[in-house]
Nucleic acid binder design. Structure first.
Lengths: 219, 219, 219, 219
DNA sequence: GATGAATGAGGGTTCATTCAT
DNA sequence: AATGAATGAACCCTCATTCAT
């Protein structure tokens, strides 16, 4: 995650070619400003300043504010996804001998952590704000429940069903429901990521959700 | 070019006195413009024009843009709530002889109808957009799941439990979960009210949710 | 021709109502700047400064640069026409006992004076510059030969024909030709009003033109 | 992404050496853009793009926008002149047995055709627009009546006078007058080349002009 | 000689807000 | 209380021009 914007001078003394570093610096500044201010409030001047770059350079790279915005959202979306990849490895408690409820609770906490990450929350609010005016944001909007999380839960449900601990016919649907429930309660109680969610509230959400699904599907 | 319809005071014919009709006109125009454009894009000029009122009159009544905004949100919140009161009378199908599942599905459809109403959706997006910058919006943000709906469901669950059809210990929690599940799936699939939700998708959401809760709580 | 831009305070001490003086000041500044710089070079900032008015006031009065431009051209066109009305009174040498040639020469000088007036020339160049891009300028462009001059000459030709000094069948056509000839040679030799026309050149143009028409139409 | 078609010099494969083809391409693009947009609106970026050349190459060749502009005008002036050389061969109808009036009418049509050519008109408007700000345009401005046309008419008048059909003392003056008359009426009625001149209007101009001169000079 | 990237100044336009009537 | 006119700051974007490769 290099963020320097100065042209780096290699060992051979070449003064640097076309500088993709600037593009990156602009994108990072754009993400920061758009997340902080929203689309309309964000000013290209400020983004340029924050990227230590002239305003026209921004326009040379991205054409106009809207395209810069979409690029920033796209980039941030990838960054958020990447940041949480380690969290999403499905292996960890699949084989766990722990009982189902504990597994679901643990999974729920993971969902909430990903969901309430500060930058991810700001991105979500931004996308919701602007999706009505920028239809290109629809894919980003549909990502509310990161697909990877759902897949992970599908695997978990399938495995537990195979083991005879659960009785889930249609794991995809059930997984989406579980995640949706956590997401909505998490967003709602944290004001869409605007206030930190106290640990006990998070725990309550996860445990009650686990209770519901255990009650419904434990064999 | 006088267009006011309020009665004049004073014998000499000077138009004078506060004109509460104007305040209302301004508020309505403000709601329309803020919902349409968002906080930053909305311009006081346009609001004044749309209210057929001078710009300074807006400032006389509301002080500044932010206070006008908060008043508009508050007003719209009440309007939305009021609009759906008829839908929310809890008596209607409580005594229905219909089975529990059907009652839950019907209730779910009611939730989605309220949730996806065009103005209600625009209001929700607006509140989510600005809650980070205007803390006074927090109450409005917490209204994501209209309280009345939840109360209604609590009553339903309680009654059905009394009748021996269900076995719900903590109806408040269960009701919140049911509503949260519907809300999240409805918002997600309709892009936060930005595209119409096809009937079969709405039906699927409601039925699967009913299935889950029936499975968990039917005695 | 009042040109003061300060709000005048009437005898009763009222501090001035809506100030049409500002509109006038803006228009005058606009004329000056557009004539000096041309449409594109002219900047609304400079016009506002020169009118001692804020830029937004310009926009409040005229909407945008193009409308300001058209208003300025229209105003200047009227001003130019008005400025030369005294010159155009047709009575002066109609009854003159002088011979026809002298009358035509005198008329020719009048045409050149009107034509080569500094502001009128700048206006003509401006209109020619922009008529391709602003179709609303077409009327102004068609005014190249002020209609009043042609009418005047028509009267002169008619009178002289009635007196038996000339033999002009179709005075309208002949008048347009005479004026066109003078105009073209005047514009050409003065570089469209860009360099002063020496007296002897002007005289030559007028005299040769008079010779041509006398030769063609003297009875 | 090399798109140049000029041959490379040097054995090692470095593209090098002056590429006069590029200079020509730049000039052509500059002419097109300046004629289309006028001096101020024309942007060096667009010219460079249209010439398929980097912007700096434009600066390398022409120094700055103004010099590029002057070169473009000069080039276009030559091109226009060259384009009409075939039309200007003076021999064609000089010996024509047709009567003088017909010859003058035919000549008039030739003048109007040359005058109202689309590119020639755009060039004229451009020169008139800018002559006040770029004194180097004065020669181009003086070319309003192409010298070649006048010479041609001088020859015609001389020949017809020698034949005893006309009685013209000073053919140069008369020729300039005839051309000036046509030019002014043609420009005026076509809005300086901005709207097409209907055939009957062109015919009327030419015929009335021929009538005038025949009336004045036929022996 | 030619390029792509970068710049600082300035373009037209719109904003939230206040003054004078 | 209500208005129309006015303001200064800021917006997005484009310009002619230069630097570094």
């Amino acid at each position: 995650m290099r963020t320097d914007s100065a042209p780096r001078r290699g060992a051979v003394g070449r003064p640097a070619g076309p500088q993709p570093a600037k593009r990156q610096a602009i994108l990072e500044a754009a993400v920061a400003v758009f997340l902080r201010e929203g689309y309309t409030r964000a000013s290209v001047d400020v983004i340029a300043d924050e990227a230590r770059v002239s305003k026209q350079t921004v326009y040379n790279h991205f054409g106009d504010k809207q395209r810069l915005f979409l690029a920033a959202v796209e980039g941030e979306r990838e960054r958020v996804a990447a940041d949480f990849t380690p969290d999403l490895e499905p292996e960890r408690d699949l084989g766990g001998a722990g009982d189902v409820r504990a597994a679901l609770v643990a999974f729920g906490h993971r969902v909430l952590r990903v969901l309430l990450d500060e930058r991810a929350s700001a991105l979500r609010r931004l996308v919701i704000s602007e999706v009505a005016r920028h239809p290109s944001l629809r894919p980003a909007c549909a990502d509310g429940e990161p697909q990877q999380l759902v897949s992970h839960l599908v695997a978990l449900l399938t495995r537990r069903t195979e083991r005879g601990e659960l009785d889930v016919d249609d794991p995809a649907t059930v997984a989406r429901q579980f995640v949706a429930l956590l997401v909505q309660q998490g967003l709602h109680q944290s004001m869409y990521g605007t206030r930190p969610l106290p640990g006990h509230e998070a725990a309550a959400i996860c445990e009650k959700a686990a209770d519901l699904f255990v009650r419904a599907y434990r064999r």
